[in-house]
Simulated scan of single mutants.
Amino acid sequence: MNNETIAITGKASSQTTEQAWAGVVTLDAPSTVTLPVGPEEIAAFSQSGMDLVVTLQNGEQIVLADFFVQVDGMRSELVLEDANGVLWLGQYQTPWQEFAFAEVNEEAMAAGGGGIPPWVFP
């Protein structure tokens, strides 16, 4: 993806960093990873060891290395942001088999939550 960045928010630190869209992004700790693509742009998700492999409809792939590593009960989360700025939280069970995406919005969070944790919003 041209000039796109991936936002990575550490769950323990709440610090957000941005990385260039690249073939492999290594997570140092459980994080919320926000990809600049909507669910409709995803062709497939797969697990390779402890890594999450995201394949786009155009064939491009990105590997989120160590996505499935848990530390002190914390795990990484995936958020997609579509072209309209809508955020989609990828919900999943452990062990991972697939994501179920649910639309989330920052206004609901600011107004009292609706059970949406603050780390969803980088």
Rank of each mutant, 00 (worst) to 15 (best):
I42M: 07
P39K: 15
D51V: 03
L52Y: 02
I42T: 07
P36S: 11
A43M: 09
V33M: 03
E40K: 15
E41R: 15
T32C: 08
D66W: 09
G49I: 01
I62G: 02
S31H: 08
D28I: 13
D51K: 07
V33A: 00
A65H: 13
P39Q: 15
A65K: 15
T26R: 13
Q47T: 13
T34G: 00
S31W: 07
A29K: 15
G38I: 11
A29W: 10
P36L: 13
S48M: 10
T32G: 00
I42Q: 02
E41L: 12
A29Y: 13
P30D: 02
T55M: 07
F45Y: 12
V63E: 09
L56W: 04
P30R: 04
Q57S: 14
E40S: 15
T26K: 12
Q57E: 15
T55H: 05
A43V: 03
P39S: 09
V53E: 08
E60D: 14
S48F: 02
P30W: 02
D51W: 02
G49E: 00
S46T: 10
D66A: 12
A43Y: 06
Q61P: 04
Q57K: 14
I62W: 09
T26I: 11
V54L: 01
V53G: 00
V63W: 04
V54W: 03
A43D: 11
L64P: 06
I62N: 03
L64I: 10
A29Q: 15
T55P: 01
L35H: 03
T55V: 11
A44G: 07
N58M: 10
A43E: 14
A43R: 09
D28S: 15
V37P: 01
E41C: 10
Q61T: 14
A29D: 12
L52H: 04
G38H: 06
T34K: 10
V37H: 08
F67E: 02
V33W: 02
V54D: 00
G59A: 05
M50W: 06
V63S: 08
A29P: 08
V33L: 07
T34V: 11
A43C: 06
D51N: 10
P36A: 13
F45E: 05
Q61A: 09
F67A: 07
V54S: 05
S48E: 11
E40H: 12
V33Q: 04
G38V: 07
P30V: 02
Q61G: 03
G59R: 04
Q61V: 07
G59Y: 05
T34R: 10
L27D: 02
L64V: 10
N58Y: 03
A43K: 09
L64Q: 06
I62A: 03
Q47P: 07
T26S: 12
P39H: 10
M50V: 10
T34Q: 05
Q61C: 03
E41Q: 14
L52T: 01
I42V: 14
L27K: 05
Q47M: 08
T26Y: 08
P39D: 09
P30K: 01
A44K: 09
S31N: 11
S31C: 11
M50K: 15
L52E: 01
T32K: 00
G49F: 00
G49V: 01
M50F: 12
Q47A: 14
L52K: 02
G49P: 04
L52P: 00
E60R: 13
Q61Y: 09
S48R: 13
L27Q: 03
S48Q: 13
D66S: 15
D28V: 13
S48Y: 09
N58A: 12
P36G: 09
T26E: 11
E60L: 15
L52G: 00
